[in-house]
């Protein structure tokens, strides 16, 4: 069946929502390890050579006294990805176990995750900028690390996961005192 106005095929729910969301989410969770353990950036200067992971980059900002920026990066790069993976897993689990509790709050959680998700790309763009900017022969040079690739993949995968989740599934389990709704 197709929409009379815009011609899109009409689905009762996003097709294969649960299976697709789990697939993206599990892939994101696996890549989350290299994204955090491997360096995202390698800096060499006359004085030192250092490699930074996402967390050590936040710590360096904090030590330099830029605590406000450190908090922003920490939220975007650490809190948001963990929150996203955790919340989407919780939503999937609650839908699959037929949970009836706090539907509107769970729907709201979904919206929060959708809204903040793309801010995690912050560190990826910072790596790209620094790699493009810092080439001062022997004085200072910045090279990207493999962690940046894994991290970019994590952000893309969590975005795909939240896009393939259908929040209407939260509302599909009928309330106890109502007659069951027709199965989709």
């Amino acid at each position: 069946m197709r929409c009379r106005r815009c011609g899109t095929s009409i689905h009762r729910r996003k097709p294969e929502s649960i299976a697709r969301t789990w697939a993206f989410l599990i892939a994101a969770a696996i890549l989350y390890l290299p994204a955090n353990l491997l360096p995202i950036m390698l800096t060499s200067t006359l004085l030192e050579q250092r490699s930074d992971t996402i967390l050590s980059g936040v710590a360096a900002l904090w030590r330099d006294g830029a605590w406000d920026i450190a908090i922003i990066v920490f939220v975007a790069s650490v809190v948001v990805p963990i929150l996203k993976i955790g919340v989407i897993a919780l939503l999937l689990w609650s839908v699959q176990s037929g949970a009836r509790w706090r539907r509107s709050e769970r729907t709201r959680l979904y919206r929060i995750v959708e809204f903040v998700g793309h801010w995690s790309m912050l560190d990826v763009f910072v790596v790209a900028l620094l790699v493009g900017l810092v080439h001062f022969r022997s004085f200072a040079d910045v090279q990207p690390g493999p962690g940046a690739v894994a991290f970019a993949a994590v952000v893309v995968l969590t975005m795909l996961a939240s896009m393939s989740f259908d929040p209407r599934l939260i509302w599909d389990v009928p309330a106890k005192n109502l007659p069951p709704a027709p199965k989709s």
Binding site: A128, V131, G132, V149
Partner: peptide
Amino acid sequence: GAVLSSYDAGVGLVAVVSAAC
């Protein structure tokens, strides 16, 4: 400059994501 440097430095996904987004 940032996109091309990232690509040349071997992190293609970083370059592609930056250029796309």
